[in-house]
Design a binder for these strands. Structure first.
Lengths: 223, 223
DNA sequence: GATTTCGATGGACGATTGTCCATTTTTTAT
DNA sequence: ATAAAAAATGGACAATCGTCCATCGAAATC
């Protein structure tokens, strides 16, 4: 059975990365030690040095892995979206706030790494990559929107709308981090779209606003 | 010289807290050890146990201190603001994005603690305090705005505007964290006000938009 | 089936972690 | 000046950290 060696090797490599993410999500970075990692991965102490040359490299690989996972998810979602720019923007917003992407595990991991970003250049780059790719997708969509709307100074409007939308999404993630229990996805989406509808009335409607009447948001929050 | 004892005691207590913040800002939480702290404070090893009973309590006290400092800054600023709701909102936005509040040190500290928030309930509460107090100030202002504007369903609009504005400010902080060099305060403010102007045209004007023509934002960014 | 190859093991290692307390130093009270 | 009180010191301590390597076992090659 040739190739089994390399196949196993890759499998273990991935097991280490996922053990790191699991531990970071559950216990935080400061409690993610070598002992903790190898225990979760069910492997031996020396594996980290063998596969990654040290703990730091492993953590960086895990950060990269998590970042790529996020981006791939968004991109996959985008391919199922319609072709109008507003459909694409809507899809990104809904995707970024969906259970699949915005959940306790991912938020824990994301903010844990962010907390170290200032002091670990390598990690900051992955957050960066994400923003860069996502930013382009949204920016292109907004450019088409302002062109259709015929705004004066459309380029500036598109740029600001991109920046503002991304900033608001970031803020929603922070909300989730600090209040995972009372966070309400529908409410978060409605707010983003309320701002977009105010800015581009012809392109974004406040579809969800009426059915999600006053108060429903909090009442429906899980315990 | 009576009272000198207690005075000195309090001074050292504060020195420890500020040593923690300094270290967290500069080296990150994971490298903020007891040795690092006492070296920066110029005190002896036992002081941490004496004053706080352990390193964890000291770190928590530092988180609380930083949080209170932030809030006090915003509140002080607000007292110099005019009395119209839009003036108060503008003051909060400008304050939150001002050099005095949004700078490398504070951003590093804030996100470092956030990274541990999920696993340290005590720390999450301080991030919370900030949001809670700030949220009320903005919410009250928006309530007055929608009343003047006579919006239908004004309460919901005010709540969403509050949530959205805070989320966008959070996002701007993240921007600063990841790109402290190319971050542009004027651009950040303009974007927030562009959204607010779209939502409440009668109350918020895009004053800075024209003078800050295309491209100026990036060109003026510090090296 | 014998030999080679290489991923996997787990304990040894020095360094560093946070806690704690016997001791010293300084202020306060007598 | 002396005694009492309290704050500050800094080293001892066990526990844990991440790294590394001599050894082993299974897969690949002959």
């Amino acid at each position: 059975m040739p190739g089994k060696r390399e196949q196993n090797r890759e499998h273990n490599r991935l097991a280490l990365i996922e053990a790191v993410l699991e531990s970071v999500a559950e216990k935080g970075i400061s409690e993610t030690s070598v002992s903790e990692i190898i225990q979760r991965a069910g492997l031996s102490r020396g594996m980290i040095h063998l596969h990654f040359g040290g703990k730091d490299n492993l953590v960086h690989a895990a950060a990269r892995h998590s970042s790529e996972e996020y981006y791939d998810g968004i991109e996959a979602l985008l391919q199922t979206a319609g072709d109008t720019p507003q459909a694409r923007i809507e899809m990104i917003v809904r995707g970024d706030l969906s259970e699949r992407v915005l959940n306790r595990r991912n938020v824990s991991i994301w903010y844990a790494f962010r907390g170290e970003a200032r002091n670990r250049t390598v990690i900051a780059e992955y957050s960066d990559t994400r923003d860069g790719r996502l930013r382009n997708m949204i920016h292109n969509a907004f450019l088409r929107v302002v062109k259709e709307a015929g705004c004066a100074d459309g380029a500036a409007v598109a740029r600001d709308a991109t920046h503002g939308t991304l900033a608001m999404l970031e803020g929603m993630w922070t909300d989730y981090l600090l209040h995972p229990d009372r966070f309400d996805r529908e409410e978060a989406m409605r707010i983003v779209f309320r701002f977009l509808a105010a800015m581009f009335p012809a392109h974004f409607a406040l579809t969800g606003a009426i059915e999600a009447k006053e108060g429903r948001a909090r009442a429906a929050a899980p315990t």
